[in-house]
């Protein structure tokens, strides 16, 4: 169960890194290109650290690269929140806010006690604090900005919010039961949204879910095809 849980966290981070990489050269300003690349790099590093822990726990002889490059979409355990395209900057920052709030909480728990992922989590919790702060600053600036930026940020929130419950689904056997983080995660997110003058939607009764069980949207396969193509076309190649 521990390996499955950590694989989910790792896949969230890897898919997020890949999505953030898309923004390089496309962000609203040069500084933001650099910021999103840096945040993506942190996420990539966290994914690598977690994959190393997972392969150790599994003991199946799989490597970090096997996990990243040689699995198909149904084998990935990331949440749906992170895999959908994010070609609108408001979506990018709203999603980062939700994900970073969740990651902050889960890594803080993992870093505070003995366990195989403690070292990765202890680094991650410090990095994610910067991601959360960066996302919050943008959500405030855009939400409480112009009429247009407010509208687009509200639309982004309305689109992303239904995917939050999947992160908080109960998993009592996991090293950290996500349901136990619910109040803490909402406690980080809601004040930012309120200050940004955004209307916080109701959490849906029947939210989209399935990522942790390998049931993904059609977007993940396309993302993986791009991310994995070189490794698959040239098996074992190094450079």
């Amino acid at each position: 169960m521990t390996a499955d849980f950590l694989l989910g966290l790792a896949d969230d981070a890897l898919v997020t890194a890949q999505r953030l990489g898309w923004w390089v050269s496309r962000a609203p300003e040069l500084e933001e290109d650099v910021a999103l690349a840096n945040i993506g790099l942190d996420q990539l590093g966290q994914a690598r650290g977690l994959y190393a822990v997972v392969t150790d726990l599994e003991g199946l002889g799989r490597t970090e690269d096997d996990l990243a490059y040689l699995r198909d979409a149904p084998d990935f355990r990331n949440v749906l929140l992170v895999e959908r395209p994010q070609t609108d900057f408001a979506v990018c920052v709203v999603r980062m806010l939700l994900l970073a709030a969740w990651q902050s909480e889960v890594y803080a728990v993992l870093a505070a006690r003995e366990g195989p992922a403690r070292g990765v989590a202890a680094k991650a919790v410090k990095e994610v604090a910067y991601h959360l702060d960066h996302a919050a600053q943008w959500v405030l600036r855009l939400g409480d900005g112009t009429e247009l930026s407010h509208e687009r940020t509200q639309a982004a929130l309305d689109a992303e919010w239904p995917y939050l419950p999947e992160l908080l689904e109960p998993a009592p056997a996991a090293p950290v039961d996500p349901a136990s983080l619910r109040d803490a995660v909402l406690g980080r997110v809601r004040p930012v949204l309120h200050e940004a003058t955004l209307v916080v939607p109701e959490l849906p009764a029947d939210p989209p879910t399935g990522g942790r069980a390998g049931r993904h949207t059609e977007h993940l396969a396309a993302l993986l095809a791009e991310m994995q193509q070189v490794a698959r076309a040239h098996p074992g190649a190094t450079w």
Binding site: Y107, A108, A111, A122, V125, K126, V128, A129, L132, D133
Partner: peptide, 11 residues
Amino acid sequence: AAGASGGPVDV
């Protein structure tokens, strides 16, 4: 305070 709790980053 900013250590393990991952609290807000002081700017």
